[in-house]
Design a protein around this nucleic acid. Sequence first.
DNA 1: GGTTCCTAG
Length: 738
Amino acid sequence: MRLYRNHLQQKQEEKKKQKRYSAPWVDIDSEDDGRPRKTSVKINGTAINGHHKATSPSHNESGRATSDAPTATSSKHAAIQEQRLNLPITKGKDALIREFRENDVTVLLGETGSGKTTQVPQYLLESNLAGNDTIAVTQPRKVAATSLAARVAAEQGVKIGTLVGYSVRFDERCGSDTRIKYMTDGMIVRELMSDPLLSKYSVVIVDEAHERSLRTDLLISNLKVIQRQRNGNGTGENNYSKAKGKEKEKATNPLKIIIMSATLDAEKFAKFFSGAKVIYVQGRQHPVTIYHSLQSQTDYVDSAMRTFFQIHTDQPPGDVLIFLPGQEDIEGLEKSVELFAKQLPQACMEVLICTMYASQAPGQNAKVFNATPPNTRKCILATNIAETSITIPGVKYVIDTGKCKEKRYLARNTGGGFDTLMTRDITKSSAMQRAGRAGREGAGFCFRLYTEDAFKAMKPSAEPEILRCGLASSLLQLKCIDQDLESLDLMDEPDRDSLISALKTLFLLGAINQKKELTPLGREMAAFPLEPVYSRAVVASKELGCTSEVLIIVSVLSASSKLFTDSSEHRDAISESRRKFRHSSGDHLTILNVYKAYQDITKSESKSGRKAWCKKHFLNERALLEAGEIREQLVGTCQRAGIDPKAEGGEGKEEEVIKSLAHGLVANTAFLQPDGSYKQVMGQSVVKIHPSSTLSERKTPTIMYDELVYTNQIYARGVTSINKGFLAGLGALSQRQA
DNA sequence: GGTTCCTAG
């Protein structure tokens, strides 16, 4: 395939002639016949099913299903049923049911669009394989859980929260009659703490297991143990009738496990469950023609731009999705595409640029879903958010830079104790997932800004999260159910250093003792859905009488969206506006000021007034709303734990708030050195206050911080000035010698 | 002078 290069670009490229690629792309996928592939269900390599009628894809698994209200008219219901029958998985229904009946553990390998996530729970229910208990279907993301539940409820013709329901943080739609329950993996891991055998569920379906989130991994390990306890010492044979005959206590109802994975790792799951059956279900995806660049492109932002204009000037209509590692590159590319688009000849289609990344305001993100205006091509610049979380309609072309950013925890005893955030090459499965985004609605094209050899050299799939992140929080949760990261049978064992780091953190906080045993304080802390450093602060605030303030601060810090919006464009206006909320002690009390100011506004202003106020002060209202929900939840936890959530230090008691936080952040402290940098109290690292902090550029003698992140340097984020004498009182200094 | 993506009765 040859790509047209226009005059404008040629001028631009003359300087970089040596970098140019003459015949830019190599076709590695010739399966471009414009027809959806035939579908089949294979069991252990054997296809047990034949051809499928070619139809347009009726719905996707990530589910844009909420519009199908359960009050559907009969014709609407009929339409839904027909869509159901046309799913690739439908022809394999009987074979699947047979397999589920015969096996306690099944690994279901299903491509996107196969319908496995919506159909399998219904098959189990309809064939009475779940007995009278509930079928749990876990998801790594909240949106997926809620929208899938809505879709399946519509298919069953019931209202959500009756036969079909969901359970995610802050939102539960379940009743006593709920038999199919979609939930986040975090939710079921929390349930383990009160019901270690998960006795409510007769089937647990772990979806998106290939993503290997920390919570999914912990769930899978626990399921293996639970199944052994509930089914007797099962050796792969069906223990259903055996267990039933015993009529022991209620918890002995048998458990079936279904692991659903998109690709590749299926054998690993099967092996983990001592040779469980693997079933393969093909999906429905339109063909995507993939092109690789002939030479590796070092300046991926620039070559993404050139590739976009090649498509734009040469290819038929269809939107373009460009994958970039982060906000900075997105903003940069946005500017240059804008600039070039203005100089296009009259005959060209217009270019509409949409940007999409998690920290962008929701309204801005939502713009990609607007219909593309006539004679216009959408150019969507996105991070990984468009890879799995969100499906954008209308995309026919994908440009893949092959880069992403990855967070990785560096253990304390290897000179770390902080997260690194680096741009790195993506994995094979990620590259395939990105390419697939071009084939959702019809045949598509993917342009990779890296060579075929570079693709071949990529790692097959991402490292599981358990090898990449801090473990203190999970370890504390496990300790509460008498388990341990060391003794638990895990698919991948975490790093020794990472484990020691987590133990050290919990010991410093007083959550475990020298014998690694859970302390009463640790149990108190574990009740809070917070990082241990923050639950420690909440517990400390009880004595210091300022729980109300600490809950606010900790809630804002735990929210997934950032409180302050950031854009290189209005940098000065932003810092000017922030001065109003600034507290001289640092970021934590500044957060408190912002939250209180917002609370005041809420009393007098309408919804739109609040929104305008946030916009004016460059605040992210979503963060404030989310913090409000978290705070409410924490108030409930406090009440159950016998902590008065309304206890307020009030005016003049700011010191108490800082002290409470310091109980949690003891290990996150540093001293000013003569050269203006900071040195960790515990650890050897030299750190710098992040430029976004109110304390950056100030010479504060002693600081505590929420976290360290290594990007270009080691930055401390969320910084507050702290009294050195008080720090010594917490034992932080003596720990240093130990 | 600068931040991928998720998530917790």
